[in-house]
Design a binder for these strands. Structure first.
Lengths: 246, 246
DNA sequence: GTCTATATACGGATAGAC
DNA sequence: GTCTATCCGTATATAGAC
C-alpha cells in the first residue's frame, strides 16, 4: 500500500468521525441538524488548525476564528462553550481518528520485520494525511488541562511502546540484533515526528512521504538487522534508488 | 570530553555574553550600571523561559513575569520596550551563545568519523546545558517577526548543513557508505532535537546525556560505516554496555 | 533604578433580535 | 441556527512618585 491508497481510508472515515465527535459533545453542541453540525464543525476545526498553526492557539482570537471559518462569534459558541473546550474537542477528535486507523492497520501484520515497516509507514502516512492536526497536537500539548495533557502523553507513550514491543519481539525471535530497544523506539519516534513538524522543509526539498518512509525503514533496519542494508535493497529495488546521494 | 567538563565552558562564557547582549540593545536598555543590568537581565530571561516553557510565551503576562522575576512591571520595561522585543532579545542571546560554542568546538576536529562524533556530542551537550532556551526557541519560532523567524530558520538549516557536509566529505573520502546525506542529516537533527524537546521523558527513564550521545553515535554509525556496530564497541567498551536491552 | 497607579485596547463570552 | 451589539475582565504599556 502506498500513500495514495492510504489517503482514501482516512477520507472515508472522516464523516463518520465527525458524527461521533458531535455525539460525544451532544451536551454542548446546541445545533440539532446533523448535516449542518458536521459541515460547520469541519469548517471550525480547519480554521483553528490554520490559524493556530500559524500563530499559536493562545494568540488566536474568536474574531480571527470567526472570519476564517465564516461563522459569526455567536454561532461559534453553539458548537462549544469555551475556547478551552474547543481545544479539547479538537484534540480528542484527532486522537480518536489517529489511534483507530493505526490499530486497524497494525493488526494485519504478523512477522517482526513486516510489523516494523508497517508501523513506520502507517505512522508517516497518517501524519501526512492529518499533518495540520499532528502539528497542532504537538505544539499545543502543554496548553491543555492536566487531564487532557495526560491523555496526550499517554497516547505518545503508547505509540512508542508499540515500536518498542515490535523490536523486542523481533529481538527475542533472533530476527533483530540485541539493542537498547527502548532508546531505539524513542529516536524512531523522533524521526517520524520530524515529518510533520518540518513539513515545509521536506516540501521544499521535494521529498515525498513514500521516499521519507523508505529512508527511515532503511536507516532503522541498518541498525537492527544483521545484514543491514542489503535486505531492503533486495526486496524493494525502487527504495534503494532513494539511497544514493542527491 | 564528557558533559561535566563541557558545562564549565558554557558557564564561563555566560557573563561575557550578557555584556554583549546589553551592548547590542544599548538603545532600549535604560539601566546604565552594567552589573545591575546583567543580574536583572539574567533574572528576566530565566523567568521568561520558566513561564513560557510551561504555558507559552503568548499566554505569559507581564504580571506573571513580574512576580517570577522579582522585578516590578515598570522596572521590566527599562530592559525592553515591548514584549515582542523581549522575545527577540532572548532568541538572539541564546542563538549567539549556541552558534559560537558549536563553531569553536567543531573547528578542532579533523577526520570525518571524529567530526561526526564531535558534532553529535557538542550539539547534545549544548542543548543539555541550555535546555530551556533550546525548547523555547523551537516552540516559539513561529511567533517571531518575519525577520527574526528567518534568522532562526537559517540557523537551523546551518546546523543541518554542517552535519550534511561532514557526511559528504567522509563519503568522498570513502570512509562513509554512499547514502542520501541530506536526508541522513535531517533525521540526525531530529534525533538531536528530541533530547531537548522530550527532556522530561529522558529524565524519568534515567538516561544521561552521555548515554544518549553514545546511542545516537552508534545508531548513525551503523548506517554510514561499513562495519557498523563493531567499531564503537571496540573503541569504547563502556559505550557498548548501553546497547544491550534494558 | 524601581515602584505603584492608571490609560487604553483587546480578549472571551453572552443577550436578545431575526 | 445565526447574527450584531455589548459586558466586563485582563492585557500591554506608560506616567510620575520616591
Amino acid at each position: 500500500m502506498n500513500y495514495a491508497e492510504f489517503q482514501e481510508i482516512v477520507v472515508e472515515s472522516r464523516q463518520e468521525l465527525f458524527r461521533e465527535t458531535i455525539a460525544r459533545h451532544r451536551a454542548t453542541i446546541r445545533v440539532r441538524k446533523e448535516a449542518i453540525a458536521i459541515r460547520n464543525l469541519a469548517k471550525i476545526f480547519d480554521a483553528v488548525l490554520e490559524i493556530a498553526n500559524r500563530k499559536g492557539f493562545a494568540a488566536m482570537s474568536m474574531r480571527d476564528l470567526s472570519s476564517e471559518s465564516g461563522l459569526s462569534i455567536g454561532a461559534l459558541y453553539s458548537y462549544f462553550s469555551s475556547k478551552e473546550e474547543l481545544l479539547e474537542m479538537l484534540q480528542n477528535h484527532g486522537r480518536t481518528i489517529a489511534t483507530r486507523i493505526m490499530d486497524q492497520r497494525m493488526s494485519a501484520e504478523r512477522n517482526s520485520v513486516e510489523r516494523l515497516r508497517a508501523a513506520i509507514r502507517t505512522h508517516l502516512y497518517l501524519s501526512e494525511a492529518m499533518q495540520p492536526w499532528f502539528y497542532f497536537s504537538y505544539m499545543e500539548a502543554k496548553n491543555l488541562s492536566k487531564v487532557e495533557r495526560d491523555k496526550a502523553i499517554a497516547s505518545e507513550l503508547y505509540t512508542e511502546k508499540v515500536l518498542e514491543d515490535i523490536l523486542r519481539e523481533g529481538g527475542e525471535a533472533g530476527v533483530f540484533l540485541p539493542r537498547d530497544y527502548r532508546l531505539a523506539a524513542s529516536v524512531m519516534k523522533a524521526m517520524l515526528q520530524d515529518w510533520y513538524l518540518k513539513r515545509g522543509k521536506y516540501t521544499m526539498r521535494r521529498i515525498s512521504v513514500d521516499q521519507y518512509a523508505d529512508f527511515v525503514v532503511e536507516f532503522v533496519e541498518s541498525f537492527v538487522l544483521k545484514d543491514g542494508v542489503s535486505r531492503i535493497a533486495d526486496s524493494c529495488p525502487g527504495c534503494a534508488a532513494t539511497l544514493v546521494p542527491s
